[in-house]
Design a protein around this nucleic acid. Structure first.
Lengths: 227, 227
DNA sequence: ATGCCCAGAATATGATCAAATTATACCAAG
DNA sequence: CTTGGTATAATTTGATCATATTCTGGGCAT
């Protein structure tokens, strides 16, 4: 019997490769999160098989997972596409993000030590660099990583899972926001979060995250209505 | 060109049948929600293909969707099983249910008219009958239908979607609760909800739902710890 | 107890069938 | 004769299946 911890479950292990459908899923997930797909864009299975150089079955399975995530939608007939958010959708997403992310931040703040806070700070610096460089993909990526790392520290996998699910829904719209406003005008409240963490004030951190969410989602709503 | 609205998109249309992977997904979903699967139970692809008399591909896709829902979990190697909840999991689920379901109830209460409230009342009567008959599956089914109908009235698809996702996580554990306590001792707060709706008090309805959630999840937690 | 081997299950491919969209051709009306 | 619309054909794409391949886990021998 194998008593050693299985390297399979370690996502950072370079020795073992995850199955093809997992790889395809992650790639598509990144493309959706980091703005390589536009809202309303059609997604074809056969298109993806050659674009990602993958078989048909893995692509199908990845698409199923993503439709369950709400990152893609069944288009009545059997076509799939990137969803177009309505104003009502955004309002619901705001409510979800505010309640879930504030709770996650609260939990994370109570657990994080010096090391973790420093790492978060570094992530924010990278984000700043991407902003001043006008690097849209870098902005989207690092903004996500900032939040994702924070929520990972909360040690609440169920909540973190659901939040990631929610992010997939508005990911494509963020790209549109960047195109509309440019990276320069994308102020965030990350500095407030970091200060609250450093001074050991969980409630303030949670409040700052709520402000961050409100501000970010307000821009999404603006782009939608100006559409 | 066909200018008539496509009957395909109508889910209640009996003429058109959904694809096999969709049917398999719904069947498995019901089996998980209504207690035909036990926590920890292993799920094999080939087992399902003959149990549901379906092909391999549809079963695979359904399983992918359900793992994304959190209704099934990858067991490191390539086994899949029904998840065992931890105490921490339940606490997170409680938080999620309370915030999401109270919001949904609030929205629903503001929209529902006489007709809808009557329908909800009928669903609750069926639930009562199942309880006094000791019908476990009937209890689980009608309890779900009560909540699902209520949330459907909120006209908030994003929120409703997420809540359904959450229900899939604790569905199997509810069955265990029934086996432990028996249907007789499963008091709920549905009557309070109905009274609040009839007297046009959305906040009271939301509060009653929160109590219902707390009470139900408390039983789940009890069963877990007594394990 | 350790390592090799085999059975069985899951992963992945390509082929085949069915459905839908697009393109084309035909007919009727102006 | 042109234009608009409809019916039909062709192409594209999705759904499913049968099959080959890979991997895991347990049994057996050392």
């Amino acid at each position: 019997m194998n008593l050693i911890a299985k390297p399979d479950s370690d996502p950072a292990n370079p020795g073992v490769k995850p199955p093809a459908h997992e790889q395809v899923y992650r790639k598509l997930r990144e493309q959706i999160l980091f703005g390589e797909m536009a809202p309303g864009q059609a997604v074809t299975i056969q298109g993806l098989t050659q674009a990602l150089n993958a078989g048909m079955t893995p692509v199908r399975e990845a698409i199923r997972r993503l439709t369950s995530d709400g990152a893609l939608v069944f288009q009545g007939n059997r076509r799939v596409s990137v969803p177009q958010l309505t104003t009502s959708d955004v309002e619901q997403l705001v409510y979800l993000r505010k309640t879930m992310e504030s709770e996650l931040t609260l939990r994370a703040a109570k657990r994080m030590g010096k090391t973790e806070i420093t790492h978060l700070d570094q992530l924010d610096h990278r984000l700043d660099r991407a902003i001043s460089a006008g690097d849209v993909v870098g902005y989207l990526t690092n903004n996500y990583l900032f939040h994702a790392y924070l929520y990972e520290q909360a040690q609440a996998p169920v909540l973190a899972d659901l939040v990631n699910r929610v992010w997939l829904r508005f990911g494509p719209s963020l790209r549109v926001v960047c195109g509309r406003f440019g990276t320069q005008n994308l102020a965030d409240h990350h500095k407030e979060v970091l200060e609250a963490l450093q001074s050991g004030n969980p409630d303030a951190a949670a409040l700052a995250i709520v402000r961050d969410v409100e501000q970010g989602m307000q821009q999404v709503k603006t782009v939608l209505t100006a559409d």
